[in-house]
Design a protein around this nucleic acid. Structure first.
Lengths: 229, 229
DNA sequence: GCAAAAGTATGATTTAAATCATGTTAATGG
DNA sequence: CCATTAACATGATTTAAATCATACTTTTGC
């Protein structure tokens, strides 16, 4: 973690897009651009919530752990995404941890300033409320999936989600490059099981492997694995 | 479902407590008090979101189904609670269903009026945002539990949650009276497994049974089942 | 440039929990 | 009030997925 030389453009993140134009200078004077190295922890689960982060460059995983071995990845964040917003809940601690997956540049907004922003920008507060509402929907959907969908379905869902958010490589194919470990943790399974299921999917010609990358061949097929049987 | 003769008191629900006093007359003229019979569906999963409900009397379960057999209960609501707020998300349909567990009286607020309320009552919008944030936290906690905690732990958690929200019977003991089916669906397991685990807990003297009711004897013990091992 | 660590690959074994099967008891609506 | 359905109880069986064990391969920090 170190101060960045690169400053964000004050217009591509959720915060800057949602605020009154008059408020942008205030943001500009308060924001701190910070760089994290690959693998570095941005904040810890249970740690004091000091502020909100807007991701300017790179990828971050947001996760919650069980014991010290198992973790569930809740979210993969990319450019433009906001993280740390879970710290706005009841007890002002982060209920999750966040780790950089690449070298990452973030814009940090102090929690006190963020709250002032909410008081001043009513429309932004409304957008944030809607944002939370949608996150809640998604979380409950995944809750149901963890409870009732089988692993294969959950992995199919993970692949499609990753394709939608991170897909489209330069080659035109929909390549996905996260570690199997992380993709398994997002799916709520072990990496051994993840690996086996991916092998099945390759046999069934729904995906193909080129080195690390997983390429989706049959989106329809994957969607059918998700439908309740 | 029928119109209620009984009207709510305009001060005990989340809406009335969070709004400007000047807005209460507007609420009063817009609200509709409705009664649902035990077992009646208040709204359907996937149905068009028409408004928000505030529970004035009785209990409601909020659930999401998988196929037509399995369901996951997301929330048990009681007097003062708000339901239907998940319909405020992206596509204006309820992502969950709600069913009356007793005879229930609700106060229904039309979605258009609710949105006007949000525009007028900034502090209420802020409270609602915080409410969602806390729900999100809780949902993600449960997601992790479904992924990594064993059934016994999840059932212990369910019992403690029910005790906190619904406990305290007249006898002073912490009695819980929901159907085993529903408690199992909340825990993310089958009722057979739920039953077996409850038997174990009885043997271990952590709970006791008096007819339908489950009484918690050893809260500490249950909490230990939740701690990650 | 090399060593240690992190990630990947794969088969064998175990286990937790779901499913199946069957009987009993309790609700509730016609 | 009786009948039909829903909820409860319990043992036997199956199965999906985790765990264990072992080997290989790729990173990356010193």
């Amino acid at each position: 973690m170190k101060k960045s030389t690169l400053n964000c453009d004050l217009r591509s993140c959720f915060l800057c897009k949602g605020c009154l134009p008059e408020w942008i200078p205030a943001i500009s004077s308060q924001r701190q651009n910070i760089v994290f190295k690959k693998g570095e922890r941005i904040f810890e689960e249970g740690g004091l919530a000091t502020g909100i982060y807007f991701l300017y460059k790179g990828r971050i995983k947001v996760h919650k752990s069980w014991g010290d071995e198992k973790q569930l990845i809740l979210h993969f964040a990319k450019e433009g995404d906001m993280i740390g917003y879970r710290g706005l809940g009841a007890d002002r601690t982060y209920p999750v941890a966040a780790t950089a997956l690449d070298e990452v540049t973030v814009c940090f907004i102090d929690i006190a300033f963020f709250e002032t922003t909410l008081q001043v920008n009513h429309q932004f507060t409304y957008s944030l409320m809607q944002f939370y509402a949608n996150e809640l929907l998604a979380a409950e959907q995944r809750m149901r999936n963890l409870a009732h969908m089988d692993v294969k379905g959950r992995i199919a869902e993970t692949l499609l989600m990753l394709k939608d958010s991170f897909g489209q490589s330069d080659s035109g194919a929909v390549d996905i490059t996260f570690s199997r470990q992380d993709m398994a943790s997002y799916s709520g399974t072990t990496y051994e099981t993840f690996f086996r299921v991916i092998n099945d999917l390759v046999k069934e010609k729904m995906v193909s492997l080129n080195g690390k990358a997983i390429t989706i061949l049959d989106e329809e097929g994957l969607e059918q694995l998700i439908a309740h049987r």
